[in-house]
Deep mutational scan, measured.
Amino acid sequence: NITNLCPFDEVFNATRFASVYAWNRKRISNCVADYSVLYNLAPFFTFKCYGVSPTKLNDLCFTNVYADSFVIRGDEVRQIAPGQTGNIADYNYKLPDDFTGCVIAWNSNKLDSKVSGNYNYLYRLFRKSNLKPFERDISTEIYQAGNKPCNGVAGFNCYFPLRSYSFRPTYGVGHQPYRVVVLSFELLHAPATVCGPKKST
């Protein structure tokens, strides 16, 4: 009989979030998941669920729940959905087409922007091929755009693959930082360890 609440607040209220290319994953298990708490945590810009209804979450049980978190800019949030393409979905964080879970995003301009520009958040701009779903690539190998090998040196047709967002508070919403948490629900042929409040007794 599990009584402890799932530590969603640790994920959502973390002081620092990860850069999207090096997104963070927390496995959540053996706890009571009260998803209604999430609705009250922040004024969400996005709370979209796929393959599951957000209002039914509190009635369900899962084997595992994974919470992935990272920062992107406002106009990239739409890429965090099944079947999307674009720089983020292709080279940084890719959801599977049959994704079961929820994408939660909110504006973090007050936390993640600086007047002089916050350069701490990076994204991958160049990659030889698209990522597979939930693949994480943290390599910093020089990207070869031409025929000549780069031998690890940046220059003509040889690019450092990561680029930094420079978040400034005066930017338009599309270029402001957004914190994203992706909850993916895993149903294996194994005992369910993460249940809503109704199912945990």
Rank of each mutant, 00 (worst) to 15 (best):
T3E: 08
N4C: 08
F8P: 03
F8A: 03
D9L: 11
D9A: 13
E10N: 06
F12V: 07
N13W: 00
A14G: 06
R16K: 14
Y21A: 05
A22Q: 09
N24R: 15
R27M: 09
C31N: 05
C31I: 04
C31K: 04
A33G: 08
S36A: 10
S36R: 12
Y39M: 15
Y39Q: 14
L41F: 14
P43S: 09
P43Q: 09
F44S: 15
F44P: 15
F44G: 15
F44E: 15
K48W: 05
K48S: 07
K48M: 06
K48V: 07
G51D: 02
S53E: 14
L57M: 08
D59C: 04
D59R: 10
L60N: 08
C61V: 10
T63I: 08
T63Q: 10
T63N: 12
T63A: 11
D68Q: 01
S69L: 02
F70W: 01
D75K: 08
D75H: 07
Q79D: 03
I80H: 02
G83P: 01
G83C: 08
T85K: 13
N87E: 09
I88V: 09
D90G: 04
Y91C: 05
L95D: 00
D97Y: 07
D98V: 05
F99M: 00
C102D: 00
C102L: 00
V103A: 00
W106M: 06
N107C: 06
N107I: 04
S108C: 05
K110C: 07
L111G: 06
D112G: 02
V115A: 15
G117K: 09
N120I: 08
Y121M: 06
Y121C: 05
L122I: 10
L125Y: 15
K128C: 08
S129G: 12
L131D: 04
K132H: 10
F134S: 07
E135Y: 01
D137V: 01
D137H: 01
D137G: 03
I138C: 12
I142L: 13
Y143R: 06
A145H: 11
G146I: 05
K148V: 13
K148Y: 11
G152C: 05
G155Y: 04
G155V: 05
N157V: 05
N157R: 10
C158D: 05
Y159S: 14
L162M: 06
R163L: 07
Y165F: 04
Y165W: 02
S166W: 07
S166M: 11
F167Y: 05
G174F: 08
H175Q: 14
Q176A: 07
Q176Y: 03
R179C: 06
V182F: 00
S184H: 13
S184R: 07
S184Y: 10
F185S: 01
F185D: 02
E186M: 00
L187A: 11
H189K: 15
H189M: 10
A190Q: 13
P191W: 02
P191N: 15
P191G: 14
A192Y: 14
A192G: 14
T193G: 11
T193Y: 10
V194M: 10
C195W: 05
C195G: 09
G196C: 09
G196M: 10
K199M: 14
K199A: 15
T201Q: 14
